[in-house]
């Protein structure tokens, strides 16, 4: 059982504070949805926790199983078990998905330890079958010329292969039509429930993703922090009443 604790996190870009006191604890196997209108710092939160160099954490802490990750580089955090599913994944021309993932898996091995290529491909193909991804997919360059749906499937495949302890999923539903959304959601759901089921922080502003990935907890973010938490019914309430409701209720507070 793992635990990701985000403690009173304050994040700035340059001199500008973006997130002002975000607190949340996620246990492995749990799915926490963070909802909120544009500009409340949801994506900033995900990137800062993953270790993006443009974001400065001015106070607070992020603990992975009790150990602060803030002094770690992005790659160390990844190897420690954090995974960020990007809203806009970068393309890497000339590097196939299979080779990229192989490098990522190799990076997790100890010094002098060599990747067992046969076992790797066996596992890769098993994951692809699970996610209903065509074999040809992994010979394509990472995200290069991909449709929105393909990019997100590529993210989910990476998550499945790297088996993180915690996944930060940033607007995974953006740019997807309803069919693509279902496929991606199925991919995430396929990774839930097992013994190694990751804790998931699901960032979205639409309820519709939550029809497919049913969260254990829903948090509403407003003005750079969590203002309301509840179960999945909170998402439905938010959908019905709109973000104006949140604005009215919490603007004064």
């Amino acid at each position: 059982m793992s635990c990701l604790e985000i403690q009173n996190l304050h994040i700035s870009i340059g001199d500008k504070p973006i997130v002002k006191g975000f607190t949340l604890t996620i246990a492995s196997g749990e799915v926490h949805a963070v909802m909120g209108p544009n500009g409340t710092g949801k994506s900033t939160l995900a990137k800062a926790i993953a270790g993006h160099p443009d974001y400065t954490i001015t106070s607070g802490d992020v603990l992975l199983d009790g150990r602060s990750v803030l002094a770690m580089e992005a790659d160390e955090r990844a190897r420690a078990g954090l995974f960020l599913a990007f809203q806009y994944p970068s393309d890497i021309p000339g590097v196939s998905i299979a080779n990229f993932l192989r490098a990522a898996v190799q990076a997790r091995l100890g010094e002098g330890e060599d990747l067992d290529a046969t076992a790797y491909y066996k596992r890769l193909y098993a994951k692809m079958d699970l996610l209903k991804i065509d074999r040809k997919f992994t010979s394509r360059s990472v995200n290069d010329g991909f449709s929105g749906g393909e990019k997100k499937r590529c993210e989910i495949l990476q998550m499945a292969m790297l088996e993180p302890r915690f996944a930060l999923m940033d607007e995974t539903d953006s740019g997807l039509d309803i069919d693509a959304l279902r496929i991606v959601a199925d991919g995430v759901n396929a990774q839930r429930g097992g013994a190694n089921s990751p804790g998931i922080l699901l960032i979205t502003h639409y309820q519709r993703l939550l029809d497919h990935i049913v969260p254990d907890h829903v948090h509403v973010m407003w003005d750079s922090r969590i203002v309301k938490s509840g179960d999945k019914s909170l998402a439905l309430e938010l959908e019905a009443k709109g973000y104006d409701w949140v604005k009215k209720e919490f603007a004064a507070a």
């Binding site: 993953a50 270790g51 993006h52 160099p53 580089e73 992005a74 790659d75 955090r77 990844a78 190897r79 995974f83 960020l84 990007f86 994944p89 970068s90 393309d91 890497i92 021309p93 000339g94 590097v95 080779n99 990229f100 993932l101 490098a103 990522a104 990076a107 997790r108 360059s141 990476q158 790297l162």
Partner: peptide, 23 residues
């Protein structure tokens, strides 16, 4: 691009190598 690769566990150097080898 480098951050993207680092977020998968590759060091900055490994990320650069991969980008160049891809090119």
């Amino acid at each position: 691009m480098i951050f993207y690769m680092q977020s998968r566990g590759l060091t900055e150097g490994q990320a650069m190598s991969l980008a160049v080898n891809g090119f």
